[in-house]
């Protein structure tokens, strides 16, 4: 007599899965209670919020010279740090690419990139303010470090994904290493590099308005002192300006990407 054997349900939830869901739910409840989150506290917060909004509008552009000074400095920080950071990342990224470099070059380079990435720009900015003093130089250095940490890694990864056939063919012509990079590697990664670089310019524009908060120059400083003096209508003016700059940067980088497809 044939015994009909049931196959196990392949979609049955495993106990580990159930336990995981319970643990996450329990932690969420615990964390909320621990922080005294409650509806009453939330409603109280809303009241503060509406008071703030009242004072923020209408925006006040009467001190536009101050705003313009900060804005110009922020843009300078963003553009210089992008150009320097991208240029340095080209080399650092190449040295970090494991398919182009022996391990004794790529591994230490990767450590350098990881170091650049390991701190949030605010922390790097504080360190540079302490190291080189208040002002735009600290902001500039901060964003260069941040740029390297971000796009050198992306560059390295793009280089690692290239087709080696083209490299092999150019190597077979007797080309030097530099020529191989210029003619077999660069054409394959160029458009992606443009994309990364535009993204970094975008992000540097944003961050250049932030480093000022810790005293590293730019519009952030203006913003911070306006907050401290409760000039909330001026704060709104600054925030609107930042939004306009970011939108403009977005538009320009889109155009550049279009040109280089």
């Amino acid at each position: 007599m044939a015994v009909v054997k049931d196959y196990p349900n392949p979609f049955e939830r495993s106990p580990a899965n159930t336990i995981g869901v319970i643990v996450i739910a329990a932690y969420l409840i615990y964390a909320a209670i621990d922080m005294d989150l409650s509806l009453a506290r939330f409603l109280e917060g809303l009241g503060h919020g509406s008071a703030l909004l009242d004072r923020m509008f209408p925006p006040n552009f009467t001190r536009w010279e101050l705003l313009l000074d900060g804005l110009i400095e922020s843009m300078q920080i963003a553009i210089i740090s992008s150009v320097v950071g991208i240029f340095m990342s080209l080399f650092i990224g190449l040295f970090a690419a494991r398919n182009m470099m022996p391990a004794w070059v790529s591994s230490p380079t990767r450590v350098i990139i990881a170091l650049c990435r390991s701190f949030h720009p605010v922390i790097i900015a504080i360190l540079f303010v302490k190291a080189v003093g208040f002002g735009a130089l600290a902001g500039l250095l901060t964003l260069i470090v941040a740029s390297i940490g971000f796009i050198a890694k992306l560059f390295a990864e793009a280089i690692e994904e290239i087709s080696f056939k083209q490299v092999e063919a150019i190597r077979a012509t007797g080309a030097s290493f530099t020529s191989i990079v210029l003619f077999a590697v660069l054409p394959q990664v160029f458009s992606r590099f443009i994309g990364f670089s535009m993204y970094q310019l975008d992000s540097n524009l944003r961050n250049s308005t932030m480093v000022g908060i810790v005293g590293a120059g730019g519009l952030g400083g203006t913003l911070f002192s306006a907050f401290q003096r409760f000039d909330y209508d001026f704060v709104t003016a600054i925030l609107l300006t930042i939004i306009a700059i970011i939108l403009l940067g977005e538009f320009l980088s889109g155009k550049v990407r279009e040109i280089f497809q």
């Binding site: 056939k165 083209q166 092999e168 063919a169 003619f183 054409p187 394959q188 458009s191």
Partner: peptide, 10 residues
Amino acid sequence: FQEYNLVERL
């Protein structure tokens, strides 16, 4: 080469 190995974007 068999697959030509041209640098495609040049």
